[in-house]
């Protein structure tokens, strides 16, 4: 049985680093591990053995049993079309400019594409552990809501509006005269555009059964996975982290990244010799303020959410190689594989 670990949270909190560090730790514990990531920092990608974008897992040259793939959402959308629509319809879809626009801009699209890709790997039977670095869209919540949004998109709500209550055949898709709402739409946007959209949606509609079934499977994968919410002690990321709780997603673990040592806030004997003493006393005093702010933010958070929490120390330099990723894991003794169900 493949274990899925979903790493999620707001932008810029270090999700990818933590996904990679967990991946390295899992592989070193002997699990055949895949890290699925979206657009990592270049040097981190190199550390994972990733030179180019691609959905195909690449083995890590430095660590046996560790693989990584970088999700290419445009390629994933094409794959979705061919997976769920008859080939001739899929051919028409992937060359339709509206399809490309939806692929690029439908906010849940990239997230859904990533979720389908995740499902492919979870069901392949090739992996003991799949660690997913979720796409950064609105705080990672999008990833969890993507299946239902996608179902709505292809579910024909708009198509029904454009065509009336019953789904027509391909011909006579669109009946302007009978629909006052459409007459206004036509005055505003022009008939050819609406007709083009209706044709596109008609094709997209053929994916409905497939996507509905798949979305259900993906939601079951989500429910079975261990979710790790990453945050810093800053207000924006904390708000994103709280949103998971608000929508009823219970994480296995909340990770506070960029944590400072608590002892910096304890009263310290001031340095009194040497030129540097005054500067260092002042420096410790201002970082102590930051330590207290972090402590308060974490206490406030744990007061609202009962989830297990771990802290990861703030590193001046983000890890760029396997050694650095091992150090992230080793530097956070509370972060364990057992804690995320591996």
């Amino acid at each position: 049985m493949t274990r899925a670990v979903l790493i999620t949270g707001g932008g810029g909190v270090g999700k990818t680093t933590i996904a990679a560090a967990l991946g390295v730790a899992a592989a070193e514990a002997g699990h055949r591990t895949l890290v699925l990531t979206v657009d990592p920092a270049r040097r981190l990608a190199t550390a994972l053995g990733l030179e180019k974008l691609g959905n195909h897992p690449e083995p890590n040259p430095g660590l046996h049993g560790l693989f990584a793939a970088m999700l290419d959402s445009a390629a994933s959308w094409d794959a979705i079309a061919y997976r769920h629509a008859p080939e001739e319809v899929a051919d028409r879809l992937v060359t339709n400019p509206l399809f490309e626009a939806v692929a690029n801009r439908f906010p849940s699209g990239q997230a859904y594409a990533a979720a389908e890709e995740m499902a492919v790997h979870l069901e392949s039977g090739q992996w003991d552990v799949v660690v997913v670095d979720t796409p950064p869209a609105s705080g990672g919540i999008d990833f969890f809501e993507a299946p239902s949004r996608m179902r709505d998109l292809v579910g024909g709500r708009l198509l029904r509006w454009l065509t009336g209550a019953r789904l027509p055949g391909r011909r006579g898709l669109f009946n302007l005269a009978g629909r006052p709402a459409l007459r206004l739409g036509d005055a505003l946007l022009g008939g050819p555009l609406l007709e083009q959209v209706a044709e596109f949606l008609f094709d997209l509609r053929t994916t409905y059964d497939g996507i509905t079934a798949k979305a259900g499977v993906i939601e079951r994968h989500f429910a079975a996975a261990a979710t790790v919410v990453v945050s810093t002690a800053d207000p924006g990321p904390l708000r994103e982290a709280l949103r998971f709780h608000e929508v009823g997603i219970e994480p296995a673990l909340v990770v506070f990244n960029r944590a400072l040592p608590d002892e910096w806030a304890e009263p310290a004997e001031p340095l009194d010799d040497g030129r540097a003493a005054a500067a260092l006393n002042e420096n410790l005093a201002r970082w102590a303020l930051e330590v207290r702010r972090q402590e308060d933010a974490r206490a406030d958070f744990s007061g609202r959410v009962g989830t297990a929490m771990v802290t990861i120390p703030w590193l001046a330099d983000a890890p760029t190689d396997l050694e650095g990723l091992r150090a992230v894991f080793a530097g956070a003794p509370e972060l364990t594989l057992e804690g995320v169900g591996i």
Partner: peptide
């Protein structure tokens, strides 16, 4: 023009907003 209640038009355009770039 206020030919029809905006409700259905707005709902339709809202749905259209998901599909038309």
């Amino acid at each position: 023009p206020r030919i029809a209640p905006l409700g259905p038009v707005a709902r339709g355009l809202n749905a259209l907003a998901d599909a038309v770039p």
